[in-house]
């Protein structure tokens, strides 16, 4: 039998022993997922944006960059673009600050710590459409419990009241308050994830480094800004990245609370793409609006990953 090549046996064991083949097999589902559910829709969106496609017409007539021209001259789109950055950056800065505080608190031992952890994670587990409806009631123009408490404390509804003489603040009826409301709800929504990520990062910091800093006389703030924060920067970058991507592409909070109003003052790219592309039927413009996610997300993601990498290396 010597000298005779044996044909390879394609058994499970054979695959298991061939590292390259095994790697290919194991990564294939992820590649397929990305191609089918991200790559294909992305290419489709590009094709739609170069056409005059509508939801009601299967025919595809290519019109070049005309749709982008229309979108860029649309004042609502420009407002939505600006709002998307305000909504995302404001909520994510709040998330990072609050998540850091929460993570530091949760590092300490105190009675009821498990319950507090559970409560902090709760917003992440609740379906956002349901919780946003809860917030809709909290910000209701007539029945808002915040307004009710403010009125009870004499802060609202009286001639000399600090927050105004009207019986309600009209949270979602005034542009500034409406934007503040959607930012607040988004912050509440993303906070648990960021807290868990930062908590994991904090736990990974070697205790002896912190003890050494304390022995050297570094107080809480000095330890925080000169020891903990630099070591936590890669993890914080990842938390920010997740929050940024989730928020930049999200329309649920805006759709449920304000539908982009009042007068488009909380309109964001995702909601505008939906209104234009699906509700109004202009699929081409909806696709073109949605494609503006790509450069923004690609740019911010690259930047954050670079920051995280440098922080890690240094």
């Amino acid at each position: 039998m010597e000298g005779v090549e044996q044909a390879p046996v394609f058994s499970l064991r054979y695959v298991w022993e061939q590292e390259r083949l095994l790697a290919t097999v194991m990564i294939a589902p992820a590649v397929l997922y990305v191609v089918a559910l991200i790559g294909f829709p992305f290419v489709l969106a590009i094709v739609y944006s170069l056409s005059d496609a509508t939801t009601g017409d299967p025919a595809l007539r290519l019109v070049g960059l005309r749709t982008f021209g229309l979108v860029l001259r649309d004042p609502v789109f420009l407002k939505a673009l600006q709002n998307t950055f305000v909504f995302t950056l404001a909520s994510q800065v709040l998330v990072l600050v609050l998540a850091k505080i929460l993570a530091l608190v949760l590092m300490e031992d105190f009675p009821g710590k498990r319950l507090v952890r559970f409560l902090i994670l709760l917003p992440w587990t609740a379906p956002i459409s349901l919780s946003a409806i809860g917030w809709l009631w909290i910000f209701d123009s007539v029945f808002s419990p915040i307004d009710w408490i403010a009125r009870s404390l004499g802060l609202l509804g009286g001639p000399e009241a600090l927050l105004g003489s009207e019986p309600n603040l009209y949270w979602l009826g005034r542009p500034f308050l409406a934007m503040a409301s959607v930012i607040l709800v988004q912050t509440w929504r993303i906070l648990p994830l960021a807290t868990v990520i930062l908590l994991a990062g904090l736990t990974a910091i070697p205790r002896d480094i912190l003890d050494a800093a304390q022995v050297d006389g570094a107080g809480f703030w000095r330890r925080l800004f000169q020891v903990i924060m630099p070591m936590l920067l890669p993890v914080m970058s990842i938390a920010f990245l997740f929050g940024f991507v989730f928020t930049f592409t999200d329309m649920t909070v805006v759709y449920v609370l304000t539908r982009g109003g009042p007068v488009n003052s909380t309109q964001v790219l995702a909601s505008w793409a939906f209104f234009k592309g699906i509700e109004a039927g202009d699929l081409a413009q909806g696709a073109a609006v949605a494609l503006f996610f790509f450069p923004a997300l690609a740019g911010v993601t690259t930047l954050i990953l670079l920051v995280a990498r440098r922080a890690e290396v240094s």
């Binding site: 007539v142 009826g173 109003g261 009042p262």
Partner: peptide, 12 residues
């Protein structure tokens, strides 16, 4: 009217 009308949903 009051500012609530700027925030109304269809059921408001």
């Amino acid at each position: 009217m009051v500012p609530e009308v700027f925030s109304w949903t269809p059921v408001s």
